[in-house]
């Protein structure tokens, strides 16, 4: 469902666009928020299209990205507030959610959000064993036993001596 602009014809200042996720849901976004995404900005510059369809971003992820964009487009918020919003934004999220989020930032080219999520990922892996990362991120080890043995030999000190920290 799309809410229509009550004020009638859109003024140049308060233009909005509609973004549709891959599951068909539509979101009304102010243009000032949309253009924080380099990809969306480009699309808007190229054609007058007010409906943008994103075929590879799901409903839930898109809602999050739009919340992020709208907050960052809000001139009334101080940089400090935006920074704490960023921290709050990525905290406590499941790894899968973060994964779709970082993929979406890639598609939409929202550099600052991409960095925020990437930083969060790096922080999650702080002081963690390789095995922990593989398990929690559900990553299949695709090294051959020989290759892994060689890596372990080269970086022996990075592999041992660390407690498995379970969160």
């Amino acid at each position: 469902m799309v809410t229509t602009d009550e004020k009638g014809p859109l003024t140049a200042k308060k233009k909005s666009v509609i973004i549709r996720s891959c599951d068909g849901d539509e979101f009304l976004v102010s243009e000032s928020a949309a253009v924080l995404s380099t990809s969306l900005k480009k699309i808007l510059e190229e054609k007058e299209d007010r409906l943008i369809h994103l075929s590879d971003i799901d409903n839930k992820t898109l809602a999050m990205v739009i919340a992020y964009l709208s907050t960052h487009a809000d001139d009334g918020l101080s940089d400090d507030l935006k920074r704490s919003f960023d921290q709050e934004f990525v905290s406590g999220k499941e790894f899968d959610v973060l994964k779709y989020l970082v993929l979406a930032t890639d598609t939409l080219q929202v550099t600052c959000l991409c960095y925020t999520v990437a930083k969060k990922m790096a922080d999650i892996m702080k002081n963690k064993l390789v095995e922990w990362v593989r398990r929690e991120f559900d990553i299949q080890n695709d090294y051959t036993p020989e290759a892994e043995a060689e890596i372990r030999r080269l970086d022996a000190w990075a592999w041992d001596d660390r407690q498995l920290e379970d969160d």
Binding site: K119, A122, M125, L129, V130, N141, I151, A158, W159
Partner: peptide
């Protein structure tokens, strides 16, 4: 992008060891 934000050297080596 994620790797570039890993600050400690041993975490970086762990990162390299995952897959």
């Amino acid at each position: 992008d994620i790797a570039k934000r890993v600050s400690s050297i041993h975490d970086y080596l762990s990162f390299r060891g995952v897959c």
